[in-house]
Simulated assay, not measured.
Amino acid sequence: MNSIDSVTLEVADTTAAARFYSTAFGLDPSQLRLRASDAPTTGFRGFTLSLVVSQPGNVDALFGAALDAGATTLKPASKSLWGYGGVVQAPDGTIWQIATSTKKDTRPVTRDVDELVLLLGVEDVKASRQFYVGQGLAVGKGFGGKYVEFATGPGSVKLALYKRRGLAKVAGVPADGTGSHRLVISGADVSFSDPDGFAWEPAASLTATD
């Protein structure tokens, strides 16, 4: 295993979720899939998805489209030391960060997405890093026990690890949560769960509604 093929969100209403994601983000359905589920879940589900774009105007365009499609604001888009971005929560409960590392527009505004990043909130970043290295992923960059980003191929979903409480703070929500993550990650050779209970499956085994 050396990359993520796609992520599957488990949602109560696949038709409504598909409409939201098509309208708000226009994401490639080969990367973001949907599966019906009524598995109990409360509070923070332990992960966020990030849309990385090229400039602040693109952040605002995606942010506005998400709100128009039914998302709620968790953190309004604003400037920070690292760039510009904000956080929304989709109607299905998934938390999305929309961000850029630049602070000034240099081209016409679009809703183009440069990268889709899955951030997993874990209890022990070092232990989870070692676990994923053992599964075949290569570390791209890391900051001690706080953050790890894995190297992935072009066009694939990027995977990163963050301390759970730190990720919840970034998302603007309490860290507490119980029940299902409502997330399945595709790209493994065999099915497994990581130390924090995040489920992986081979791509061929996924039966999802796009």
Score class of each variant (00 low, 15 high):
residue 202 P to W: 00
residue 5 D to R: 03
residue 180 S to C: 08
residue 202 P to R: 00
residue 53 V to S: 00
residue 49 L to R: 00
residue 168 A to G: 09
residue 37 S to W: 03
residue 118 L to H: 04
residue 62 L to W: 03
residue 173 V to H: 01
residue 155 G to P: 07
residue 94 T to V: 12
residue 54 S to H: 10
residue 191 S to Q: 13
residue 61 A to C: 08
residue 41 T to N: 15
residue 50 S to H: 06
residue 112 D to G: 13
residue 8 T to M: 08
residue 188 A to T: 03
residue 22 S to D: 15
residue 89 Q to D: 08
residue 59 V to M: 04
residue 138 A to F: 11
residue 104 K to D: 14
residue 177 G to M: 02
residue 19 R to G: 13
residue 208 A to S: 15
residue 188 A to E: 06
residue 130 Q to M: 13
residue 57 G to V: 03
residue 112 D to R: 12
residue 90 A to S: 13
residue 142 G to D: 09
residue 23 T to L: 12
residue 31 Q to T: 14
residue 94 T to Y: 04
residue 60 D to R: 04
residue 129 R to A: 06
residue 15 T to S: 13
residue 60 D to F: 04
residue 163 K to W: 06
residue 106 T to M: 08
residue 106 T to Y: 12
residue 167 L to K: 00
residue 27 L to Y: 06
residue 167 L to W: 01
residue 36 A to Y: 13
residue 58 N to H: 11
residue 122 V to H: 03
residue 53 V to M: 02
residue 184 V to L: 11
residue 48 T to E: 09
residue 161 L to Y: 04
residue 42 T to R: 12
residue 48 T to M: 09
residue 25 F to Y: 11
residue 179 G to E: 11
residue 119 L to E: 13
residue 83 G to D: 06
residue 149 E to R: 08
residue 95 I to N: 00
residue 62 L to Q: 02
residue 118 L to R: 02
residue 111 R to S: 11
residue 70 G to C: 06
residue 177 G to P: 06
residue 65 A to G: 09
residue 60 D to A: 05
residue 43 G to D: 06
residue 197 G to P: 07
residue 49 L to E: 04
residue 51 L to P: 03
residue 90 A to Y: 01
residue 117 V to W: 08
residue 165 R to K: 15
residue 181 H to S: 05
residue 134 G to V: 00
residue 147 Y to E: 09
residue 157 V to S: 03
residue 20 F to K: 00
residue 148 V to W: 00
residue 70 G to M: 01
residue 55 Q to I: 00
residue 15 T to L: 10
residue 99 A to D: 12
residue 135 Q to G: 10
residue 193 S to R: 14
residue 188 A to Y: 06
residue 196 D to P: 09
residue 21 Y to D: 06
residue 130 Q to D: 15
residue 55 Q to T: 06
residue 19 R to V: 07
residue 103 K to A: 12
residue 104 K to W: 09
residue 130 Q to G: 14
residue 159 L to G: 01
residue 178 T to C: 12
residue 127 A to P: 09
residue 133 V to D: 11
residue 69 A to E: 07
residue 153 G to N: 09
residue 156 S to W: 08
residue 9 L to R: 00
residue 105 D to Y: 02
residue 139 V to L: 04
residue 127 A to F: 05
residue 3 S to W: 10
residue 10 E to L: 12
residue 104 K to H: 13
residue 200 W to N: 07
residue 76 P to D: 15
residue 203 A to W: 12
residue 13 D to E: 08
residue 72 T to H: 13
residue 207 T to Q: 15
residue 45 R to L: 06
residue 41 T to C: 14
residue 209 T to D: 15
residue 34 L to R: 01
residue 207 T to G: 14
residue 97 Q to N: 14
residue 191 S to W: 07
residue 101 S to L: 10
residue 101 S to N: 15
residue 158 K to T: 15
residue 192 F to M: 09
residue 140 G to C: 05
residue 91 P to V: 01
residue 174 P to K: 00
residue 132 Y to M: 04
residue 178 T to F: 12
residue 203 A to S: 15
residue 144 G to V: 00
residue 84 Y to E: 07
